[in-house]
Design a protein around this nucleic acid. Structure first.
Lengths: 236, 236
DNA sequence: CGACACATTGAAGGTTCTCAAGCCACGTGG
DNA sequence: CCACGTGGCTTGAGAACCTTCAATGTGTCG
């Protein structure tokens, strides 16, 4: 922890990979210093559960590296993934007592965690932070509503194509181009749980797309988007 | 407009039915006066469209009376209702350029509208209001995510039962009791568009529930919840 | 190499959708 | 007052899509 030996208490945040994209972006040095005082870094390994559905929401976090899922279950055990969380996204439920979903790391992950109460106090004292959080929450609400259209009205093919486009955009670290190699942080079962399908239907749709030359599947955890326009047409 | 003749510029808000439940709840008299200066009341008749999907988002509003729907369409015309908006709810997309959904009144409606730009300026100057808006947006996000579970993983019967319970809670002006008479502000087609089903499936499920004695359907636009525990069991 | 988890493929089945007809409530005009 | 038309809702039959169940295939790690 060489950061702690510095005289200025800025350590983590200065070197933070998402410093300018997360909700902390608008804070000045003094504020960052304060925030740094109540947060700490934490590593999660793939598959590790950070929060459980219905449990008391004790912490919130910024995602620095890696990817997580938010998910909930029906009484018969069927799972629905409610959201995927990417680097620079905010994680957790401030101003609420219990977590309405479970949070699990899909890949090895680094997050910057805060006690929820500490974070709330800080947020109420720093409107610029709260404003950033509001903008982010509004964007997330739009995103989840677009997902409702997918879940309610799309066919299996449209769902899978939409999913591939989304993941391509967010992980192809640029607007997806033809031939983009995309790492796939989800298993087939998890893709099914995102799309409200079964694992078999997802598998069939993927091989259909591969046979049509629209995508390639070099391994279970990689996808190559070969014909973007075609994929977009199928996602319509 | 007798309010304008008063010396204090408080008029509308003082008499507002949702004064203590909307996002304005935490404002003091001076702030309410300012807010009142940039807002105005507007009436909508059932079926009237307030905003169109994809259009520039020029206004935001508080709902005072009545009910509205947020909806979006697939290219082939299929509609998905993304949310129902009740009295005291906030309406619109602040801090965004275009509206990601259309807004239409389901019943005759009274709203308190603001130019989006005016509202944003006011919000940034009044952190207490922005905080209220944040809490509301977080709650709305939770709600829309719960709806994702419904859309992705529930059977038609579970969807219809869940819908009836939700509407019973929000319109039965109390925690729903057995025998509660619930007005139904949606047509069968609109219910289908909320649940991601077809009108025929909704109709069949409703008659199944009626035949089972769980509900009664005195008219097309009324529902009586007769056996709450049974309905809850079917919604599980 | 063998065991295991995960993924693919196939065949059968079911729930929901589609298409079509009939029903009901309501309003209008004869 | 009743016939009639209209729009919304219900009901039925058949088809489609996705699921379920089951077997086979593939990659990874000891």
């Amino acid at each position: 922890m060489p950061e702690l030996s510095l005289s200025r208490p800025t350590s983590f945040c200065d070197a933070c990979a998402i410093r300018n994209r997360a909700i902390c972006a608008d804070l000045d040095d003094r504020e960052i210093g304060l925030l740094n005082g109540i947060g700490r870094r934490r590593h999660l390994v793939a598959g590790e559960q950070l929060m459980w559905e219905g449990d008391e929401a004790v912490l919130v976090a910024n995602v620095i590296e890696g990817m997580l899922k938010l998910s909930t279950h029906l009484s018969d055990g069927k799972e629905q993934i409610l959201g995927l969380v990417y680097p620079s996204d905010f994680l957790g439920r401030p101003f609420g007592e219990t977590s309405p979903y479970g949070v699990e790391a899909l890949t090895d992950t680094v997050i910057c965690v805060f006690e929820r109460k500490d974070f709330e106090r800080f947020a109420r004292d720093h409107p610029r932070l709260e404003h950033k959080l509001l903008e982010r929450t509004l964007t997330e609400l739009d995103r989840s509503r677009r997902w409702m259209l997918l879940l309610g009205r799309m066919t299996a093919e449209q769902k899978v194509a939409s999913f591939l486009l989304e993941i391509g955009e967010r992980l192809g670290n640029a607007k997806a181009r033809a031939g983009t190699h995309v790492p796939l942080p989800l298993s087939r079962q998890q893709i099914a749980d995102v799309l409200g399908l079964t694992i078999e239907t997802v598998s069939r749709q993927l091989t259909r797309l591969r046979n049509a030359g629209v995508i390639d599947l070099p391994s279970r955890r990689e996808i190559v988007l070969q014909d973007l326009p075609d994929l977009e047409a199928r996602a319509s």
